[in-house]
Design a protein around this nucleic acid. Structure first.
Lengths: 198, 198
DNA sequence: TATTAATAATTGACCAGTCATCTATTTATT
DNA sequence: AATAAATAGATGACTGGTCAATTATTAATA
């Protein structure tokens, strides 16, 4: 194993383990000590791999999107399915993960960190915004496609519908955490199915 | 000034100043030291007035709702206006505060703390949930009223519409903080005006 | 009513532990 | 031998929380 490979491997382990902690506990409740301990990496190494805790979190956000959005993206862009059905499958897929894999407790790493840190770290705010707007652009395109086909109505601009759906999903994740219960995302799915994507 | 009055006054100052800090910085980034310093109250007194930091935050959440929801509630329950118009005025009022008084940066204290702490403090989670469900019940009633009058459609249960609107509002606050920009709440207002409360 | 005893309120100094970060050193690679 | 990579351990500042000592208030007594 070459030096650089080993290097990137350790940085990746730190990121993977750090993402878990950040996701559940947020920025301020996750310490560098926690991260290196759970990753089995010497404490002193952390600042060899990353400039600072903030820098680490920016890279964690990027890895989070790359790892977690990719499978959902495949569903969204699967051209063998109609645009409207793709949108529904896409949301079904994402929100099933929240419900079943995560027991309604953790929400989305980016939303959590955005809520906690947007006002206090420009680097973190911008990295989240950047990734989210990339996602939003993809969804907007599919909504536009569905509108062009007459599958969903034309009353609102595709970009506004997409932004609203994403925001409503975010909020339902917050309430889901507060309730410890899937009602908010079930209600969300019903609303987009029966009202927004009509 | 009697002893008990002075007592409650100091506790109130701690709560008011603490709410400001918690609102902006969240639970873990707000220290007891920060709170007593800004309130001009001796450190030792904090634990005379409150059992713990967690207990303080629960009481801060209660005071936050009592102080901030009350004026909006008056608008919501003002029987001289039709139910649908009351709903629109109510949301207009709340989201103007976010935009104009708070520069799109702070969101809602309860949402912020819910996102950060729901998984880690049952006391905080329950106090937020309790207050939010009280608010939700009031909104639900007004939506029901509007449905009965035929002012808005009957396709969804009033409780589901109310929950969805509140969740969408929450999410738009998160994105507002991330974007540093009012677009998400403007888009939210348009959506409830043109789609949900039709 | 004046004095004392008992109780309650209030306080800053202090605790053990943790924080993010840095530096001096060791280990591995050319 | 020279250079770069990796790490152990230490740093000062800060954490939530405690507590013995002080002060203010009330109750009891003469």
């Amino acid at each position: 194993m070459t030096k650089t490979l080993k290097h990137e491997l350790k940085a990746d382990i730190l990121l993977d383990k750090g993402i878990e902690l950040l996701w559940s506990k947020g920025y301020n409740a996750t310490s560098v000590n926690d991260i290196v301990k759970i990753a089995g990496v010497p404490k002193g190494s952390f600042y060899f791999y990353f400039e600072s805790k903030e820098d680490f979190v920016v890279k964690a956000i990027e890895k989070y999107f790359d790892d977690h959005f990719t499978p959902a993206k495949e569903i969204l862009l699967n051209k063998s399915v109609s645009p409207k059905q793709r949108l529904l499958n896409f949301h079904e897929f994402r929100y099933n993960i929240l419900k079943n894999e995560m027991d309604c407790k953790m929400g989305c790493l980016a939303c959590n960190l955005g809520n906690e840190m947007a006002e206090h770290s420009e680097a973190i705010r911008k990295s989240i915004l950047n990734k989210e707007q990339f996602v939003l652009a993809l969804i907007t395109e599919v909504i536009q496609e569905a509108q062009d086909l007459g599958e969903i109505n034309n009353l609102m601009a595709a970009a506004d519908i997409a932004a609203f759906i994403e925001d409503a999903g975010k909020g339902s994740m917050t309430t889901m955490k507060e309730m410890n219960n899937a009602y908010p995302i079930d209600n969300f799915m019903n609303m987009i199915r029966n009202v927004l994507l009509k």
